[in-house]
Every structure is written in structure tokens, then in C-alpha cells.
Simulated assay, not measured.
Amino acid sequence: MNIRLSDMSLSAFVAGFVAVLVGFTSSVAIVFSAAQALGAGPAEISSWMWALGLGMGLCSVLPSLWLRQPVMIAWSTPGAAVLATAAASGGFHLPEAVGAFLVSAALVTLFGVTGWFERLMGRIPMPIASALLAGVLARFGLDAFVALKSAFALVLLMLATYLVGRRLWPRYAVPGVLAAGTLFAALQGKLHLGAVSLALTVPVFTMPVFTLPALVSLALPLFIVTMASQNLPGVAAIRAAGYDMPVSKLITLSGLATLLLAPFGAFALNLSAITAAICMGREAHEDKGRRYMAAVACGLVYCVIGLFGAAVTGVLTAFPRELVVAIAGLALLGTIGNGLAAALKDDAHREAALITFLVTLSGLSLWGIGSAFWGVVAGALALFVQQWRPRIAA
């Protein structure tokens, strides 16, 4: 593995940090809720951060360096929501949940090793995949401007910095936005760093217990939402950015890493879509061949989170919510625009792609499965109705 430190740049490092900031702060509360609902105490919750941080970090850093492409692995946010809901209603405890994590991870690994998931994704037309990605990310773009209601001055300053930055120094627009927002929040006294404490995280092993109710109520829903709501848009992000990655091997890697780390709290690792879009966009680097360093930077920060969970959690959660949603929306504007352009440029797929985009953006959830899956289903059905022609015998 030939590591070229010269490929690292300020824009790539900041893109990686922003990806962590957005991915972590937007969903860590859901992960904490899931752990607490399953009966985890402070030691077990810290162990979850250790397992998830190292799992996401190493599974992002190593393949990114090996492939020289931005491979982004994240935890399953909808999976955490499923766990929190099922635990509250079903009365499951942590050992049963760990058994469910292992079963779900085994299924993910199976779909990776056999190539079933990659073959399924290969049948989805590129305009539908691009519309799916745009729909997943557009919510963050909307939230950036909704944040004007509660933090008008902060968000307006960040937006002005972004526009000026895109005009004068395009590569450093997002770092400039982050710096301006952080400085403004600090001057207003809105950075809350009092909860930061430096200490190494100690992993806690939980012996798994396998039960049929946990298999039905935890393992299968966790597997379905991870594949449909996380890995599916993750592959769409890879394709939309123009990268050719061994998807089946990456799915297998995420499954194996979850199998290894599940007893310590890694409930589900999967391909990322939102944070991947940040690291795969032009804001990370103009040179597509050097954007992998953004994923490396993101992965290294995740590893630090794993090792010093309490301290890094305190730092990342110190940022105001409006700053986080604003930096996410502004960093993703280019990717959202590119996704919409690719989705709508072909007349033959335009209506189906638009339906995919709108259903995905709607946030529709049925039977615990999120809108990303239903967006693809709706788009595929629309495409079938519009383009199917019966075969006429000669």
C-alpha cells in the first residue's frame, strides 16, 4: 500500500471533518437512545462508541488507501431507530440484541459474498439512482435554510461566506464556512465545551444470546433497513460520483467488521450516502483522484472517536445544531445539483426519476423501511408502466 501524504489537502481534511461532524451529531442521540432502551449503562454506551468508531474508521481508511477512492462506512441510523423502537415495545435486553446484531451482520455478509446486492443495484438505471441520491440529500439542503428561523445571523453569515468563497476560492469555500460559523458561534457563547473530558474508552464484551423473538423483531428489521435505507443510497452515491468500486467486497467488509465488533456494540456498519457525498464532491478536491484523502481524514477522526469516545463526543456535540445543519446543506449543494441534473437530463427517464426524487424526499416510511427504498420502488414502477411493451410473436 503506497501512501502518498502529498495527496492530503486542507479541503480534503475539512471535508472529512465536516462529514464526521454531520454524520455524528445528526444521529448520535438515536444511537444513545437505542443503547439505553436495551439496558446499556454508561460503560456499555462508551463501548458502543469504541466499536462503532473503530469499525467505521478502519473500514473507511484502509480500503480508501488501497483503492485510492473515497470509501465511506457509517453506522446505520435507521437501524438504531429500529432498535430503539423494538426494544421499547418488546422488552429486549442487551445480550439478545447482540445476538440479533450478529445474525443481521451474517446476512449482510452473505449478500456481499454472493454478489446478490450488487447485481440488484446494477439493474437500477443511472437516472433513478441519481434521483434517489438527490432525494436523500435534498432534505439536508432544505434544513440549512429552515435553520434561518432559529439562527438567522449565524446561517446568513455562513451562506454569505459560502457564496463569496465559491466565487473567490472554490476549493476552500467549505473550510471558510466552517471557520466563520465556528468563530461566530464562539463569540456568541454558543460553543458548549464544558462536557469535554479526556479519557481512553474501555471496550465491554457482551455475550450474545440468540432467541426467536429477537431474530424476528430485531435482526430481520435491522438487516432490511440497513440494506434498503443505507447501502442502497450508498451505492447510488458511489455511482453518481463516477467511481467504480468493488461494491460486493465493501458490503462483505462491512458485514465482517460488524460480526467482529457486534459483542462490543457495533450494531450495523454499512456504506454511507450523506457523508460519502461530502467526501466525494468537488469541495473535497478538484482532482477526483485525490478525494480519497477526505475519506481517510474522516476515518481517522472516527478512530479517535473510538479511542477517546467521551472527549470527542463532547467536542462534536458542542457545536450549535443550526451550525451543523447549515454546514451540511451548503457542503452538499453541488452534489444535490449534480444528482438532479443527471436524473432529469434524459427524457425517457425524467418522470420516473422525478417520482423517485419526490418519494425519497417525502420521508415516507412503511413497515419500518425508509423512503430511499420506496423511492426506488416508485420510480421503477413508473418506468415499467411507461416503457414496457408486450412481445409480439413473429
Rank of each mutant, 00 (worst) to 15 (best):
M1D: 01
L5R: 07
S11G: 12
V14M: 13
G16H: 11
V20W: 07
L21W: 01
F24W: 14
T25K: 09
V28S: 05
F32S: 10
Q36H: 14
W48D: 07
W48F: 15
W48H: 02
M49E: 02
W50Q: 08
A51L: 07
G57K: 04
S60N: 14
V61C: 08
L62V: 15
L62R: 04
L62G: 05
L62M: 13
L65K: 02
L65T: 05
R68S: 09
P70D: 11
I73L: 14
A74R: 01
W75V: 14
T77Y: 08
G79S: 05
A86C: 02
A87G: 04
A87Q: 07
A87H: 05
G91Q: 10
L94E: 05
L107C: 09
V113K: 11
V113G: 03
T114E: 12
T114W: 12
G122P: 12
I128A: 07
S130W: 10
A131P: 07
L137A: 13
L137W: 13
G141A: 03
F145N: 09
F152Q: 11
A153E: 09
L154D: 01
V155E: 11
L156Y: 06
L156S: 15
L156R: 06
Y162D: 00
G165M: 04
R166T: 03
L168E: 00
A173K: 02
P175G: 01
G176S: 13
V177P: 11
L178Q: 00
L178M: 14
G181H: 00
L183A: 15
L183S: 06
Q188F: 02
V196C: 12
L200C: 10
P203I: 00
P203S: 04
T206N: 07
T206K: 09
L212T: 10
V216I: 15
S217G: 06
L220R: 00
G234W: 05
R239P: 07
A241H: 01
G242V: 04
G242M: 04
M245F: 11
S248F: 06
K249M: 03
L250C: 06
I251E: 02
T252G: 06
L253E: 08
A257Y: 01
L260N: 06
L261C: 09
L261G: 04
A266E: 02
A268H: 14
A273W: 05
A276M: 10
A277H: 06
I278L: 14
M280E: 13
G281L: 01
R282Y: 04
R282F: 05
R291L: 02
R291Y: 03
G309Q: 03
V315M: 15
A318M: 02
F319W: 08
F319R: 05
E322C: 00
L333N: 01
G339Q: 03
G339W: 05
G339S: 11
L344Y: 10
K345M: 03
K345V: 09
D346P: 01
D346Q: 11
D347K: 05
A353G: 12
L354N: 07
L354A: 15
T356K: 05
T360V: 13
L361T: 08
W367I: 11
G368E: 13
I369T: 13
F373E: 06
G375Y: 12
V377E: 07
V377A: 14
A378M: 11
A382W: 11
Q386C: 04
W388D: 09
R391Y: 13
A393M: 07
